[in-house]
Design a protein around this nucleic acid. Structure first.
Length: 481
RNA sequence: GCCCCCUUCGUCUAAUGGUUAGGACGUCACCCUUUCACGGUAACAAUAUGGGUUCGAAUCCCAUAGGGGGUACCA
């Protein structure tokens, strides 16, 4: 009967899923958190549901306002907007206590008067005897008089759930059917001796409060789920559907942590990745789009997204593939997108140049860039006065002979500074000096920009314009002779 | 220790019991090219191990190994 009710209510709710992302503000938003948020968001979008944000700030020692702002701005940057205002877990504290009392009154939870020290001692003894340790249920069914007596003695107590006999099953959307025997679960603590509620309890109450229909979170919570289900059952609350996502690991196969290259979403913004690239890459970590294509717009991902195609095993974060995806998206980006992204990141270098010039420059650099920062770096080099590394200089001008550059400089003084004129000049110099076209171009490129790579030489020359090109060439020769 | 979960190229992943185990990133070679990148073509590369079941196993079952999580008055 209960199962049927659960089935009916979950069917009803399925029409309008409500999901949440529940970070604790003890640090910035990292890649793993972003992935969890993303999958929740995708699921909500896919089913026209709601995506809520709950800040789990009950650990007052470690929670900081700064991190709340950072997390929200990182989510915002990624485009993972939440519905409504975000919810502070700490605001729900009085409710937590009310529910605690309710459970106590209904006899579904009880006061346990063991101290931590006593339990530690018992645990130690079991370990020595090589017996599995279970918290003794000594106080589970004592009479009200005994309870009152302990209370009068001012004995400290925790509140524990009376875990019933039987087993707890649920169907995880990713992991499938999971069954745990209740005897494997201790009467776990709902409230500490200082009265503060524990994580498993608070999460459950808040999720129920927010009418969450689908709990989508990291698989580090998989083992907590049966406990939470027991709380739902004790309170006769509808049980949400669960979906646990495998972890994201660093390149060494270990859980992502601060030791790893870049774990902060903010860092990827600063490195010049576009949000759509991060989202595309993250969506592919642990999820199979059922397609040979891998480059998707956000809308395409929403359309294709299915939780049942999420992988069970953890995935390693691979920056190389991210770079490739980023490059693919960059090629598809419009000039307008690119310029606005550049302006967000770093535009100081471009401010003294005309809009048209910057447009042409960006267009020129787009093709060979993986992310926005690549454009900026190359742009800076082309825009600023070149500096020459000795090493490269000797490689390119083997015998310190600058004849080609001098010839080119004088040859450039024609009336029409066009591609065909420049090409003809380069050709002539190549023939006259009996040097290959490649060598001529390399020398000119280096003299003009100070680098040995980058866009087509003629394009750079045209972009910079006749005057600027000639003065750079003259400076080059002046500096070195 | 006990409980739950996981295991296909270096990495992300395909393969309703029958495929030369496929694709992508990366790597390498070649082509294109003034350079770098893009693009194109090929190559290298995987079913953790051992037993079953079956005509036939990456796929089902059982062990073993390895990894993750829980077993906390952490979250």
């Amino acid at each position: 009967m209960k199962a049927l009710q659960r089935f009916e209510s979950s069917r009803l709710r399925m029409n309008y899923p409500i999901v949440r992302f529940a970070p604790s503000p003890t640090g910035y938003l990292h890649i793993g958190g972003a992935r969890t948020a993303l999958f929740n968001w995708l699921f909500a979008k896919k089913h026209q549901g709601k995506f809520l944000l709950r800040i789990e700030d009950t650990d007052l020692e470690r929670s900081e306002r700064l991190y709340i702002d950072q997390i929200i701005s990182a989510l915002d940057w990624l485009g993972l907007n939440h519905d409504g205002n975000y919810i502070l877990q700490s605001n729900n504290l009085s409710n937590h206590h009310a529910v605690l009392n309710q459970l106590l009154n209904q006899g579904k939870a009880y006061r346990c008067f063991y101290t931590k020290e006593e339990l530690d001692q018992l645990r130690l003894e079991s370990e020595k005897a090589k017996k599995p340790f279970r918290v003794p249920t000594t106080y589970r069914d004592i009479s009200q008089e005994e309870v009152n007596k302990h209370l009068q003695d001012q004995k400290e107590f925790t509140i524990r759930l009376k875990v019933p006999e039987g087993k707890t099953c649920f169907e995880d959307l990713v992991y499938g059917n999971i069954t745990v025997q209740n005897r494997e679960i201790d009467d776990f603590i709902l409230a500490r001796s200082d009265g503060s509620p524990t994580y498993n309890f608070v999460v459950t109450i808040d999720d129920a409060d927010m009418k969450i229909t689908h709990v989508i979170r990291g698989d580090d919570h998989l083992a907590n789920t049966p406990k939470q289900i027991l709380i739902y059952e004790a309170l006769d609350l509808p049980i949400p559907t669960f979906a646990h996502l495998p972890m994201i690991l660093g390149s060494d196969g270990k859980r992502l942590s601060k030791r790893h290259a870049a774990t902060n979403v903010q860092e990827y913004k600063e490195k010049g990745y576009q949000p759509k690239s991060i989202i595309n890459y993250l969506s592919l970590l642990g999820w199979n789009p059922d397609s040979d294509d891998e480059i998707f717009s956000i809308n395409e991902i929403i359309e294709k997204f299915e939780l049942n195609q999420v992988q069970k095993k953890p995935a390693i974060f691979d920056e190389k593939k991210l770079n490739w995806i980023s490059g693919q998206h960059l090629q598809k980006s419009s000039l307008r997108e690119l310029t606005s992204a550049i302006k967000d990141l770093d535009f100081t270098w471009a401010e003294n140049h005309s809009e048209g010039f910057i447009k042409d420059l960006v267009l020129l650099l787009q093709e060979r860039s993986k992310n926005i920062q690549d454009i900026i770096e190359l742009g800076k080099i082309i825009v600023s006065n070149p500096s020459y590394s000795k090493e490269d200089l000797h490689k390119i001008f083997i015998d310190n002979n600058f004849e080609i550059i001098e010839n080119f400089t004088t040859g450039l003084s024609f009336d029409e500074f066009t591609a065909s004129n420049i090409e003809e000049l380069i050709n002539n110099i190549s023939i006259q000096n009996e040097v290959s076209l490649g060598v001529v171009m390399k020398q000119i490129r280096f003299a003009i920009t100070g680098i040995t790579y980058g866009p087509s030489l003629v394009e750079i020359l045209l972009l910079l314009g006749q005057d600027s090109v000639i003065s750079r060439l003259k400076n080059f020769v002046k500096q070195l002779t």
